[in-house]
Simulated assay, not measured.
Amino acid sequence: MRILLPILFLFSFVSCSSVTTKDVDYQVGEQNFKGYMALNGSADDKRPGIVVVHEWWGHNDYARKRADQLADLGYNAIALDMYGDGKTAEHPKDAMKFSKQAFSNPKLLKAKFNAAVELLKKQESVDPERIGAIGYCFGGAVVLFNATQGADLKAVVSFHGSLGGIKTVKKGSTAKLLVINGADDPLVSKEDIKSFKNVIRDSKLSMKFVNLPGATHAFTNPAATEKGKKFNLPLAYNEKADKESWEMMREFLQNTL
């Protein structure tokens, strides 16, 4: 697959004294993608880069907010676009359709993720040797898949991510993993957890797996409870679990990047 070098059209503004944000357009093959960067650093003060992968709803304000928060912690972040053209879903049927399509072509899925990684590495404030990734729900599955398939990542954090699709670990994969799951999440079965843990154990990758009591699916997203009620889905925000998981991530990235 041919991956074209990103062509950027940047609309930048300063959100605080040390963070610059900008929208970025880039391409994979012939398809256009719309991402968002929050950068903290300079050519003389290169800092780690973090890729943020959105939920199955697509590249939305929530993913961009997380990129901003990472920049506030001192990182450079890109909230990527896995669906193309910044496409988002308003209904679970569309979200399921988009996410299934993304995983139906693993080669393309990796290419779309790697395009964002390479774009992030090219920023003058980024240390290209210190790249990590975080993902939510669908995004958690995306970052875990790429981490176990040899992506150039030092650290990966999955928040309430799907685990059932991780069947093998490619030789040479070295990313350290932090997997934060809701203990009451019915969308992640005990069988999926057991199988996933066995795969990672056999690969000898470094992993910390955390089950947060009382947390169900999408526990980090303040909009989850309303969407859960609207569509009769087991989604609910849990403020305590959100804060605890973010602090776990902060410590993990600090120790690995």
Rank of each mutant, 00 (worst) to 15 (best):
V142G: 03
V142E: 06
L144E: 04
L144H: 09
L144N: 12
F145V: 01
F145Q: 11
F145T: 13
N146R: 03
N146C: 14
N146W: 04
N146I: 11
A147Y: 10
A147Q: 05
A147C: 07
A147G: 04
T148D: 07
T148F: 08
T148M: 11
T148V: 09
T148N: 08
G150I: 10
G150F: 09
G150E: 02
G150P: 15
A151C: 00
A151E: 00
A151H: 00
A151D: 00
A151T: 02
A151M: 02
D152K: 15
D152I: 09
D152C: 07
D152P: 15
L153D: 02
L153V: 12
K154R: 14
K154L: 11
K154Y: 01
A155P: 06
A155E: 05
A155C: 11
A155W: 05
V156Y: 09
S158C: 08
S158W: 03
S158A: 15
F159H: 11
F159E: 08
F159S: 06
F159G: 04
F159C: 07
F159T: 03
H160P: 15
G161Q: 10
G161H: 09
G161S: 12
L163K: 06
L163V: 05
G164Q: 13
G164R: 14
G164C: 03
G165S: 12
G165V: 02
G165L: 12
I166A: 13
I166P: 05
K167I: 01
K167S: 11
T168F: 09
T168G: 00
T168P: 00
T168K: 14
T168I: 09
V169M: 02
V169H: 01
V169K: 00
K170Y: 04
K170C: 06
K170E: 15
K170W: 04
K170S: 12
K171C: 00
K171G: 04
G172T: 13
G172L: 08
G172K: 05
S173N: 09
S173V: 12
S173D: 11
A175S: 11
K176H: 14
K176L: 04
K176F: 08
K176N: 12
L177D: 10
L178S: 08
L178E: 08
L178W: 01
V179Y: 03
V179E: 05
I180R: 02
I180W: 02
I180V: 14
I180G: 02
N181I: 09
N181T: 12
N181A: 14
G182K: 07
A183T: 01
A183N: 10
A183G: 04
A183P: 01
A183Q: 13
A183C: 05
D184M: 08
D184S: 15
D185F: 01
D185M: 08
P186H: 06
P186S: 09
P186R: 05
L187W: 06
L187K: 05
L187R: 06
S189M: 10
K190I: 01
K190N: 08
K190V: 01
D192Q: 14
D192V: 02
D192H: 13
I193R: 12
I193E: 14
I193N: 04
I193H: 03
K194P: 01
K194F: 07
S195C: 02
F196L: 06
F196H: 04
F196N: 03
K197P: 01
K197L: 12
K197N: 15
K197T: 04
